[in-house]
Design a protein around this nucleic acid. Sequence first.
DNA 1: TTTATAATTGAGTATCATTCTCATTTATAA
DNA 2: TTATAAATGAGAATGATACTCAATTATAAA
Lengths: 143, 143
Amino acid sequence: MTNNKLLSDFKDALRKEGLKITPQRIAVLEEIIKNKGHRESEDVYMAIKTRKTHVSRATVYRTLDILVQNGFARKLNLGDGRARYEPKIDSPHHDHMICNNCGKIIEFVNHEIEKIQEEIAKHHQFKLQQHIHQLFGICKECQ
Amino acid sequence: MTNNKLLSDFKDALRKEGLKITPQRIAVLEEIIKNKGHRESEDVYMAIKTRKTHVSRATVYRTLDILVQNGFARKLNLGDGRARYEPKIDSPHHDHMICNNCGKIIEFVNHEIEKIQEEIAKHHQFKLQQHIHQLFGICKECQ
DNA sequence: TTTATAATTGAGTATCATTCTCATTTATAA
DNA sequence: TTATAAATGAGAATGATACTCAATTATAAA
Ligand SMILES: [Mn+2]
Ligand SMILES: [Mn+2]
Ligand SMILES: [Zn+2]
Ligand SMILES: [Zn+2]
């Protein structure tokens, strides 16, 4: 999906939700889809602030929420007290391996695990909505 | 394992670490092994404070860390900003399903998943140290 | 048992990510 | 162009957890 298509989809989503199209909101979307992935709110804030539109931390947080709510981004909790955001469009579901030493994030997906998860849920008559699966350890380069 | 055995093991662990045996530390251990599981620090603090030894929040946090460091408890991050602690002794590894509605926690373990995890790590030459696997959704009773 | 002392405790303060408040600014539809 | 509801930003608030440091206490030596 081209960035232009994404941008116009985002504008459509804003209109559909009765939200206004503002330079700050566009800037946050653009920053997130630069696809460096796994960005902290503060990173996004600094990146936008230093070279583009004037923006506040509050607005970055608010816009990241809008992106997550509308399926443009995914919010990750890596257990270190700071949320990360990654673009969701064109990025199918995956989970993460995180290096305890350098913080590097490796993405993985395993359909067998996904299937077993669903069986476990079904067995407990539990309606599965989301899951978190994170592997922590030491990456190849840090050993 | 009896609670008495656990208590003496804890005292041994404290001695081995050069730490003192205090009523506060004993009280936190006892509260945790009451096996209600998945307790918040504040719960533990209130429980001890209301019916036993005088204790402070700081000491509860410090002692929970000692328990985790020495293998007596496991610390869980359920993504809601408050850590949970569960006894680890006599409780083999398991993961958690959490109801998005009522907060109920169901424990599960699946050896196939555990095995695949290890294969994934090995494939990336990643030395696996811990993992988090949590399923979120709506429990049977809340549907 | 007393003493010396290093560890522990607790009250309060600090931290830090995130959310909230509200006065000012702005996007949008008429 | 105007009216106005929504959005923004600066700074305050929040909440879990960590830190500080003076007072207390567990422990080992005498
Ligand atoms: Mn990712
Ligand atoms: Mn458990
Ligand atoms: Zn690494
Ligand atoms: Zn439920």
